[in-house]
Amino acid sequence: MRAYIRLHRETIVLSLTLLLLIIATMKPTITLQREITSHLIFIDVTQSMNVTDMSVNGHPVSRLEYTKHLLKKTIKQLPCHSRVGLAIFFKADVALLYTPVETCRNLSLLEDTIDHLEWRMASRGNSNIRLGLQSIAVRLVTIDVPVNVVFITDGDEAAPLNAINKTNLSGWIGGSDWLLVGVGGEKPSPIPKLDANNKRVGIWSIYSIKIAPGIAVNDGPNSARDESYATAPYEYYLSRLDDRYMEELAADIKGNYLKASSPKALTHAMLNQKVSYKDQTEFNLSWLFALGALISIITLYIADMPNVYQKWSKTP
């Protein structure tokens, strides 16, 4: 038997190589079950997110621009097969941009969507985060797979909360292990007022109980002063990230709070969220059989190298 194999070694190896290549062209697959983590990220796009009190690479940027930078870096650090969906928050509402998609195959889609996030996507500029959390819980009912909720916001409530309009979340049943991510500086900063062309036209005033986008600005010579503009620093509508309030919110909904500091910290926090589900996927084995065919050919010629060398050395 050994003598037969030695005599017909080349024929056997070439036949095996051909068989492996034929199998590879048939695209064989096996079904694998894996655990999928899915995240739905809600981004605050209200006008307080236009405050410039953050920095990227040493350059001052708005809270929203920092959020966009943070998200793009974070999504790249998530393992492939993780899924991410995007939504926006404004007033007390949320709008779903799309349900979670696989991050590696759809990275350009996710980055393009993030790049185009802006305050003009909101139909209203004021915000009630507590009601927004309830809106998120309602929205989750329409999604057919379990998701981890990530809510990125500066925590600014406009109009400011009081004993009358502060929604009680003590009986929260909307879900647990949500991640609230705080963006913004600790020092109170004025909120810029922008026109429909995204040009700065002033500072929001404390007399503006509702901060709503789309208010017409009359630039004509006979225009009267718009009372929603601040004319002196003491009228500025100021905004800051209140960590204590954000921690209170997280505790009310049995979630966690993270102050935005780096993509690494956000990635770690997202990977520690507990919601996941099992999914079946087809794993292509073609490359494995093609690799086997290549190894067979290489093995054949390596084994024949001593004979080739002897013939070459005897050549005058």
Rank of each mutant, 00 (worst) to 15 (best):
L71I: 12
I129R: 01
V275C: 05
Y207H: 15
L7D: 11
N168F: 06
I295N: 05
A216Y: 14
T29P: 00
P263C: 11
A87H: 02
L169F: 02
N126V: 00
T11N: 10
K187C: 02
D279W: 12
T299C: 13
I136A: 08
S228W: 08
I43M: 12
R2D: 12
M49P: 03
H59R: 15
N165H: 03
E35S: 13
D154G: 04
A303Y: 14
Q47E: 14
D112Q: 15
P190N: 08
L117D: 05
Y229I: 06
N50A: 12
A196H: 09
E157T: 01
M270W: 06
Y237K: 15
L179G: 09
P213N: 09
P160G: 02
N198K: 15
I209C: 00
N165T: 03
P263F: 06
L110V: 04
L180G: 05
A293I: 00
I43Y: 05
E186S: 14
M246K: 03
S135P: 10
I5W: 11
T153I: 02
T52L: 05
P263Y: 08
G185R: 07
K76N: 12
G175L: 13
L110Q: 12
V61P: 07
D243T: 12
Q47P: 04
Y245H: 14
K199E: 14
Q47Y: 10
I253S: 07
I143A: 07
G182I: 03
G125T: 04
P100Y: 03
D115H: 13
A265M: 13
S127C: 08
I41R: 09
E118G: 07
S170C: 04
T17Q: 07
H81W: 08
H39I: 08
I297D: 03
L291A: 15
G292V: 00
V149M: 13
K314Y: 03
S15T: 13
D177L: 11
T11H: 11
G292R: 01
L294V: 08
D304H: 13
E247N: 12
G185D: 06
D154C: 06
H59G: 03
T25S: 10
E65K: 11
R244C: 00
G155N: 07
I191P: 05
T99N: 10
N307I: 00
G85Y: 01
L194C: 07
T74L: 08
M26R: 12
Y236V: 01
R240V: 00
L96K: 03
Y229T: 00
P100G: 06
G132L: 04
S135Y: 08
P263A: 10
I143P: 05
W287G: 14
I206K: 15
V183I: 13
T113I: 02
I75F: 10
Y309P: 00
L161P: 00
E282L: 15
I191L: 06
E111V: 02
E10R: 15
W204K: 08
A269S: 15
L288G: 01
D144W: 04
M305F: 07
V45Q: 09
R6T: 05
W119T: 13
W204M: 10
S228P: 01
S55I: 00
D226I: 05
E118F: 02
